[in-house]
Amino acid sequence: MKTYTLMLLTVASFMGCTDEKKGSVQSQEPESPFIYKRDREFTFLASHFDMDGRLTGLDTLFLTTNSKIFNEKYGQTYSSWSSTGGDFGSNFTGVTEHDTAVWIHPPRDGRYKKLELSPFPMVKYPLVKGNGWSWDLLVGSHYSIEGYAEWADNTAEAFASTYRITRELPLQTQIGKVDCFEIESFTESNFERTELKSYFNPAYGFVRMEYRNIDKGRLLMELIRVRHAQSGTMLPFKDLQLQ
């Protein structure tokens, strides 16, 4: 994991299918209260848009997770991101998950570097419409974005994020209709305000993330597959309404 300056005090304080083919039934995963603290691979389709809404690129991202301790101080377990688009091979980072909150690092290499300056995917329980929370982050200058957010070397800038659960809804996705909580979040700093609208399912985590980033471009990340990381067996999506 790259060395960088982060303020994770808030995290430390409170963070601690049916097959894709209709009719195919697969073995159930053992019951567990956790989403990311087990051996899973989450596959996302990433669509990149410029500030005028034009599609500029597609990528496939893989988030692999397990229950091994990554950072004991912040209660993080191991995760890794990899990309098929040439931005990076694979890098390790952490996930914080327990009975009060879920928080994950987004990919932050290549064209995804700017996600460091946007709200991180996060939920705080209970999942109830209207609930909100905040989180502050200090970011080192090696994450500055030329022309959009630049600051002096060896210094850090403050980025303050606020979150609110706006509604509960059945979300139509590429894998079917999934019950989700919609979370709107914003990050304020000395630069352009950034945004993340995320859709969270209590069994499968973040199934859709819509970013407006520091360069005013947009990124859409859509969950298209979940499987056991070790065996490769597809996982059944509970209560999934197939198309």
Rank of each mutant, 00 (worst) to 15 (best):
E29S: 09
A101P: 10
R40P: 02
H98E: 12
L58C: 04
K114T: 11
F49I: 00
G85Q: 07
D99R: 09
D39F: 06
E72C: 03
P121K: 03
T65R: 08
H105G: 15
H105P: 02
D52I: 02
T64E: 14
G86Y: 09
S27L: 14
K124F: 00
F42V: 01
M15Y: 10
T18S: 10
T100D: 10
M7S: 12
K21L: 08
S82D: 07
C17H: 07
G85F: 11
P121M: 05
K68Y: 11
G86F: 04
W103A: 12
L9P: 00
S67D: 14
S79D: 13
M7A: 13
R38V: 01
G85C: 13
P33A: 04
L63W: 05
T18C: 10
G75Y: 07
T43Y: 01
F49D: 00
K113N: 13
M7G: 02
K124T: 02
Q76F: 05
F34H: 03
H48Q: 08
P119H: 08
G130R: 05
F62E: 05
L45M: 00
M51R: 10
H48M: 14
V128A: 01
W81Y: 13
I69M: 12
I69N: 06
G23C: 06
L61Y: 06
M51E: 15
D99L: 11
E29A: 10
D87V: 03
D59Q: 08
T100R: 11
N66I: 12
I104R: 03
D59K: 02
L61M: 09
E41K: 14
Y112T: 06
D109Y: 14
I35F: 04
G86K: 00
R54W: 04
G89C: 07
E116M: 15
